[in-house]
Protein backbone atom coordinates (compact mmCIF):
# COMPACT_ATOMS: atom_id res chain seq x y z
CA UNK A 1 0.00 0.00 0.00
CA UNK A 2 1.32 3.44 -0.95
CA UNK A 3 1.92 5.97 1.75
CA UNK A 4 0.84 9.63 1.61
CA UNK A 5 4.44 10.78 1.04
CA UNK A 6 4.67 8.58 -1.99
CA UNK A 7 1.48 9.98 -3.42
CA UNK A 8 2.98 13.44 -3.86
CA UNK A 9 5.74 12.01 -5.96
CA UNK A 10 3.36 10.67 -8.60
CA UNK A 11 1.01 13.59 -8.49
CA UNK A 12 1.82 15.12 -11.86
CA UNK A 13 1.89 11.87 -13.78
CA UNK A 14 -1.38 10.86 -12.12
CA UNK A 15 -3.12 14.03 -13.26
CA UNK A 16 -1.66 13.59 -16.72
CA UNK A 17 -2.89 9.97 -16.78
CA UNK A 18 0.66 8.89 -17.46
CA UNK A 19 1.20 6.40 -14.66
CA UNK A 20 1.94 2.78 -15.40
CA UNK A 21 -1.03 0.49 -14.76
CA UNK A 22 0.35 -0.88 -11.47
CA UNK A 23 1.13 2.48 -9.95
CA UNK A 24 -2.19 3.74 -11.19
CA UNK A 25 -4.03 0.98 -9.34
CA UNK A 26 -2.04 1.48 -6.14
CA UNK A 27 -2.64 5.18 -6.27
CA UNK A 28 -6.34 4.86 -6.84
CA UNK A 29 -6.55 2.42 -3.95
CA UNK A 30 -4.82 4.91 -1.67
CA UNK A 31 -7.03 7.77 -2.78
CA UNK A 32 -10.16 5.81 -2.06
CA UNK A 33 -9.12 5.42 1.54
CA UNK A 34 -7.36 8.70 2.18
CA UNK A 35 -9.60 11.77 2.00
CA UNK A 36 -6.67 14.16 2.58
CA UNK A 37 -4.74 12.94 -0.43
CA UNK A 38 -7.90 12.78 -2.51
CA UNK A 39 -8.80 16.34 -1.60
CA UNK A 40 -5.32 17.58 -2.25
CA UNK A 41 -5.15 15.97 -5.64
CA UNK A 42 -8.54 17.31 -6.55
CA UNK A 43 -7.34 20.81 -5.72
CA UNK A 44 -4.14 20.44 -7.70
CA UNK A 45 -6.20 19.28 -10.60
CA UNK A 46 -8.26 22.44 -10.35
CA UNK A 47 -5.13 24.59 -10.13
CA UNK A 48 -3.72 22.87 -13.17
CA UNK A 49 -6.92 23.34 -15.11
CA UNK A 50 -7.11 27.02 -14.21
CA UNK A 51 -3.50 27.54 -15.26
CA UNK A 52 -4.09 25.86 -18.61
CA UNK A 53 -7.24 27.92 -19.13
CA UNK A 54 -5.38 31.10 -18.27
CA UNK A 55 -2.85 30.34 -21.01
CA UNK A 56 -5.18 28.99 -23.64
CA UNK A 57 -6.16 32.14 -25.54
CA UNK A 58 -4.82 32.24 -29.09
CA UNK A 59 -3.30 35.38 -30.59
CA UNK A 60 -5.07 37.30 -33.33
CA UNK A 61 -2.53 37.55 -36.13
CA UNK A 62 -4.72 39.45 -38.54
CA UNK A 63 -3.64 39.10 -42.16
CA UNK A 64 -0.73 36.82 -41.28
CA UNK A 65 -2.40 33.53 -42.16
CA UNK A 66 -3.68 34.86 -45.45
CA UNK A 67 -0.12 35.84 -46.38
CA UNK A 68 1.22 32.46 -45.37
CA UNK A 69 -1.41 30.65 -47.38
CA UNK A 70 -0.67 32.73 -50.47
CA UNK A 71 2.99 31.92 -50.13
CA UNK A 72 2.33 28.22 -49.76
CA UNK A 73 0.16 28.27 -52.88
CA UNK A 74 2.75 30.24 -54.80
CA UNK A 75 5.36 27.72 -53.68
CA UNK A 76 3.11 24.89 -54.84
CA UNK A 77 3.07 26.30 -58.35
CA UNK A 78 6.77 26.86 -58.73
CA UNK A 79 9.92 26.17 -56.89
CA UNK A 80 12.12 29.02 -57.85
CA UNK A 81 13.36 30.13 -54.49
CA UNK A 82 14.51 28.65 -51.25
CA UNK A 83 12.10 30.32 -48.89
CA UNK A 84 13.79 30.26 -45.60
CA UNK A 85 15.49 33.57 -45.59
CA UNK A 86 12.82 35.41 -47.42
CA UNK A 87 10.49 34.15 -44.79
CA UNK A 88 12.62 35.51 -42.02
CA UNK A 89 12.57 38.95 -43.54
CA UNK A 90 15.14 39.25 -46.15
CA UNK A 91 16.41 42.63 -46.94
CA UNK A 92 18.50 43.47 -49.87
CA UNK A 93 20.61 46.45 -49.34
CA UNK A 94 22.89 48.35 -51.48
CA UNK A 95 26.18 49.91 -50.82
CA UNK A 96 25.90 52.63 -53.35
CA UNK A 97 23.00 54.88 -52.64
CA UNK A 98 20.20 54.86 -55.18
CA UNK A 99 16.66 56.06 -54.92
CA UNK A 100 14.27 53.34 -53.80
CA UNK A 101 11.40 52.78 -56.15
CA UNK A 102 7.91 52.09 -55.00
CA UNK A 103 6.09 48.78 -55.26
CA UNK A 104 6.85 46.15 -57.82
CA UNK A 105 5.03 42.84 -57.96
CA UNK A 106 7.78 40.24 -58.12
CA UNK A 107 11.27 40.16 -56.75
CA UNK A 108 13.78 41.04 -59.39
CA UNK A 109 15.98 38.26 -60.81
CA UNK A 110 18.93 39.78 -59.01
CA UNK A 111 17.04 39.75 -55.73
CA UNK A 112 16.15 36.13 -56.25
CA UNK A 113 19.67 35.20 -57.08
CA UNK A 114 21.12 36.99 -54.10
CA UNK A 115 18.55 35.52 -51.76
CA UNK A 116 19.06 32.04 -53.07
CA UNK A 117 22.79 32.23 -52.58
CA UNK A 118 22.36 33.90 -49.29
CA UNK A 119 20.21 31.02 -48.18
CA UNK A 120 22.68 28.41 -49.33
CA UNK A 121 25.53 30.29 -47.73
CA UNK A 122 23.79 30.74 -44.43
CA UNK A 123 22.99 27.07 -44.22
CA UNK A 124 26.53 26.14 -45.08
CA UNK A 125 27.86 28.57 -42.51
CA UNK A 126 25.58 27.60 -39.69
CA UNK A 127 28.49 26.25 -37.69
CA UNK A 128 30.53 29.34 -38.29
CA UNK A 129 33.41 29.99 -35.97
CA UNK A 130 33.64 33.08 -33.87
CA UNK A 131 35.74 35.73 -35.58
CA UNK A 132 37.08 39.10 -34.85
CA UNK A 133 36.52 42.12 -37.01
CA UNK A 134 40.14 42.04 -38.19
CA UNK A 135 39.79 38.59 -39.78
CA UNK A 136 36.58 39.60 -41.50
CA UNK A 137 38.22 42.64 -42.92
CA UNK A 138 41.18 40.58 -44.11
CA UNK A 139 38.87 38.17 -45.89
CA UNK A 140 36.93 41.00 -47.50
CA UNK A 141 40.13 42.62 -48.66
CA UNK A 142 41.27 39.33 -50.17
CA UNK A 143 37.95 38.67 -51.87
CA UNK A 144 37.43 42.18 -53.20
CA UNK A 145 40.83 43.68 -53.94
CA UNK A 146 40.67 47.41 -53.68
CA UNK A 147 37.65 47.48 -51.39
CA UNK A 148 37.48 50.53 -49.18
CA UNK A 149 37.11 49.02 -45.75
CA UNK A 150 37.01 52.30 -43.93
CA UNK A 151 33.42 52.71 -45.01
CA UNK A 152 32.28 49.27 -43.92
CA UNK A 153 30.50 49.12 -40.63
CA UNK A 154 28.66 46.05 -39.45
CA UNK A 155 26.65 47.77 -36.83
CA UNK A 156 23.04 48.79 -36.88
CA UNK A 157 23.57 52.24 -35.46
CA UNK A 158 23.64 52.09 -31.70
CA UNK A 159 23.43 48.31 -31.44
CA UNK A 160 25.91 45.88 -30.04
CA UNK A 161 27.35 43.64 -32.72
CA UNK A 162 29.13 40.33 -32.29
CA UNK A 163 30.77 38.65 -35.21
CA UNK A 164 30.21 34.92 -35.43
CA UNK A 165 31.65 33.76 -38.65
CA UNK A 166 32.46 34.55 -42.20
CA UNK A 167 32.56 32.41 -45.30
CA UNK A 168 33.59 32.94 -48.84
CA UNK A 169 31.10 31.61 -51.35
CA UNK A 170 30.54 31.93 -55.07
CA UNK A 171 27.56 33.42 -56.81
CA UNK A 172 27.59 32.56 -60.50
CA UNK A 173 31.29 32.00 -60.29
CA UNK A 174 31.89 35.42 -58.78
CA UNK A 175 33.22 35.86 -55.27
CA UNK A 176 30.83 36.72 -52.50
CA UNK A 177 31.31 36.86 -48.78
CA UNK A 178 28.80 35.88 -46.21
CA UNK A 179 29.19 37.41 -42.77
CA UNK A 180 27.20 36.15 -39.84
CA UNK A 181 26.78 38.19 -36.71
CA UNK A 182 24.34 39.02 -34.01
CA UNK A 183 23.02 42.46 -33.43
CA UNK A 184 21.16 43.09 -30.19
CA UNK A 185 21.23 39.29 -29.77
CA UNK A 186 19.38 38.61 -33.03
CA UNK A 187 21.13 36.48 -35.62
CA UNK A 188 21.90 38.44 -38.76
CA UNK A 189 23.81 37.77 -41.88
CA UNK A 190 24.97 39.79 -44.81
CA UNK A 191 25.91 38.62 -48.25
CA UNK A 192 28.31 40.88 -49.98
CA UNK A 193 29.05 40.58 -53.67
CA UNK A 194 29.85 42.61 -56.69
CA UNK A 195 27.12 43.22 -59.13
CA UNK A 196 26.42 45.25 -62.20
CA UNK A 197 22.88 44.22 -62.83
CA UNK A 198 20.72 44.69 -59.77
CA UNK A 199 17.56 46.62 -60.46
CA UNK A 200 16.44 49.12 -57.90
CA UNK A 201 13.21 48.66 -55.99
CA UNK A 202 11.48 48.36 -52.69
CA UNK A 203 9.28 45.33 -52.48
CA UNK A 204 7.06 43.66 -49.96
CA UNK A 205 7.79 39.96 -49.65
CA UNK A 206 5.68 38.03 -47.21
CA UNK A 207 4.69 40.25 -44.36
CA UNK A 208 7.94 42.16 -44.41
CA UNK A 209 9.43 44.68 -46.73
CA UNK A 210 12.42 43.75 -48.74
CA UNK A 211 14.69 46.51 -49.81
CA UNK A 212 16.24 46.12 -53.17
CA UNK A 213 18.34 48.77 -54.64
CA UNK A 214 21.02 48.74 -57.17
CA UNK A 215 24.59 49.67 -57.12
CA UNK A 216 27.21 49.35 -59.71
CA UNK A 217 29.77 47.84 -57.39
CA UNK A 218 28.30 45.75 -54.62
CA UNK A 219 25.05 44.31 -53.55
CA UNK A 220 24.50 43.34 -49.94
CA UNK A 221 21.78 41.07 -48.81
CA UNK A 222 21.05 41.24 -45.13
CA UNK A 223 18.83 38.86 -43.30
CA UNK A 224 17.80 38.84 -39.73
CA UNK A 225 15.27 39.73 -37.13
CA UNK A 226 15.64 43.45 -37.69
CA UNK A 227 13.06 45.51 -39.41
CA UNK A 228 13.75 47.02 -42.77
CA UNK A 229 14.19 50.47 -41.28
CA UNK A 230 17.19 49.38 -39.26
CA UNK A 231 18.62 47.53 -42.22
CA UNK A 232 18.12 50.50 -44.43
CA UNK A 233 19.98 52.67 -41.97
CA UNK A 234 22.68 50.02 -41.86
CA UNK A 235 22.83 50.16 -45.64
CA UNK A 236 23.55 53.82 -45.61
CA UNK A 237 26.37 53.15 -43.17
CA UNK A 238 27.85 50.89 -45.82
CA UNK A 239 27.07 53.21 -48.65
CA UNK A 240 30.50 54.65 -49.02
CA UNK A 241 32.15 51.35 -49.97
Amino acid sequence: MMRCEEIVRYWGAYLDSELGPETQIEMSAHLEQCPECADRLGKEQQVERKIAQGLSDTPDWGAFWGDVERRVRAKGRSRILPFRWMAIAASLLVLVGVAFLATRKDPSPMARLALAHHQAGVEAAREGVAMDAGSVRALLRESFPGIDLAALDMACPGHEVRLQGVRRIEVDGKPAVLVRYTCCSKPMSVLLMRTEDAGPGDEPIGNRRVWIAAGTRFIACAVGGHDAGILQRAASAWAGA
Partner: peptide, 18 residues
Amino acid sequence: DRTEAQDVVQESVLVAYR
Protein backbone atom coordinates in the same frame (compact mmCIF):
# COMPACT_ATOMS: atom_id res chain seq x y z
CA ASP B 1 7.77 38.80 -29.32
CA ARG B 2 5.02 38.75 -31.95
CA THR B 3 7.25 39.43 -34.93
CA GLU B 4 9.68 36.74 -33.90
CA ALA B 5 6.85 34.28 -33.31
CA GLN B 6 5.41 35.03 -36.75
CA ASP B 7 8.81 34.53 -38.37
CA VAL B 8 9.15 31.17 -36.70
CA VAL B 9 5.65 30.01 -37.56
CA GLN B 10 5.89 31.15 -41.15
CA GLU B 11 9.22 29.45 -41.55
CA SER B 12 7.84 26.29 -39.92
CA VAL B 13 4.89 26.21 -42.30
CA LEU B 14 7.16 26.52 -45.31
CA VAL B 15 9.51 23.84 -43.99
CA ALA B 16 6.52 21.59 -43.34
CA TYR B 17 5.14 22.21 -46.79
CA ARG B 18 8.47 21.33 -48.34
